[in-house]
Design a protein around this nucleic acid. Structure first.
Lengths: 189, 189
DNA sequence: ATGGGCATGTAACGAGTTACATGATTTT
DNA sequence: AAAATCATGTAACTCGTTACATGCCCAT
């Protein structure tokens, strides 16, 4: 019984678990709450899991011995819990990073989906959808450009990804613009 | 009781249901099997649901009266089922397209995620991951460019989205290239 | 005759969300 | 005084996947 206790090799956890583990791999001791905020910084390229999900993953990581928990009593309220990555946790994270095949990149592009079915919508609506999306893209881009200088030296790889993010949003913005032009041209005919 | 029978306004279905409904909105009578193949053409910008999911959605759409089912007996095997969109289905699809707020675009970029945690990986691995991703991107781009001429006139909007897809893959490819350069530069120092 | 495509079906599971609840502390 | 932030927790649910099973027909 109990397949994966202590030494059990490769517990194959969901990617979210590794994302959380990875955040702890920067070395800091963090609470679930803090982890959630950090995970929100990944929203530019990876969706942010729900709060309840993070707490669930932490419990699982703990059960696998990949993190340790330190409790701080807070009378009248649940203990505050701090998590830190273990040796085994770091090893498992490195294994995942090095050996596990990379999951396919998932895009659920609701805006493209709308446009795909454009023959049922009226052109004004499509145009609005694209405008909204462009606004959102600009906002993401701006937030990223604020975030980036905070990373720079201490976090070289996150900074690299942030740059990728900026390229990504810029390209997407250009594409949206192109689509808007095409739509306009269609309407004029 | 039974909240959503016939006339119940806005049954708020999952996006996948609308995607299936949308495919039927092109007017053809299709089987679950065919629908699955069509949905795979959306993989360039929207993930393809599992086969079982499609059949499940069709049952739900039928229960809501948004599609009709025509059965063809095949002795010794389950009936073959053809689906066609109803008036109500088309109306509901149009309502969704026009009125429902667009869900946020979801990106689960496992490659960016890997790079984000690059300090734990060895540079060779990162480089490989990027190479694999670039290969995949090129393949997607090529498949799209094959698909596109088949759409062109009859399906103007899908064609538009396909073009967006091409821009998307081209930009992503350029970004990957940039990341590879940066990585190389880091290693040389 | 063997493998692939057509075509349906379903049981079991897991990931992840929503929605709620509690209560202290800090900021406006 | 109100609102936001900190911080945890749980129950119910649904979406969606995996994995299997059946069996015909067609091409090689």
């Amino acid at each position: 019984m109990s397949e994966d206790e202590e030494g059990a090799s490769a517990p194959h956890l969901p990617t979210t678990a590794y994302a959380v583990l990875g955040l702890l791999a920067f070395g800091r001791e963090l609470t679930g709450y803090e982890l959630r905020k950090w995970s929100m910084n990944m929203r530019f390229f990876y969706w942010s899991p729900a709060q309840s999900q993070i707490y669930a993953e932490l419990r699982r990581l703990l059960a696998h011995g990949l993190v340790t928990e330190r409790r701080e009593a807070r009378p009248g309220r649940p203990d505050k819990r701090f998590y830190r990555i273990t040796e085994a946790g770091l090893a498992e994270f490195a294994r995942w990073l090095r050996k596990e095949p990379v999951e396919p990149v998932v895009i659920k592009h609701s805006v493209m989906l709308r446009l795909f079915f454009g023959h049922v919508a009226d052109p004004d609506r499509l145009s609005d959808v694209l405008d909204d999306y462009a606004r959102w893209l600009r906002q993401q881009r701006d937030e990223l450009s604020v975030l980036r200088p905070e990373l720079s030296d201490a976090f070289a790889y996150p900074d690299l990804v942030a740059e990728w993010g900026e390229l990504f949003y810029a390209a997407e913005l250009a594409a949206v613009d192109e689509m808007r032009k095409r739509l306009r041209r269609r309407r004029e005919r």
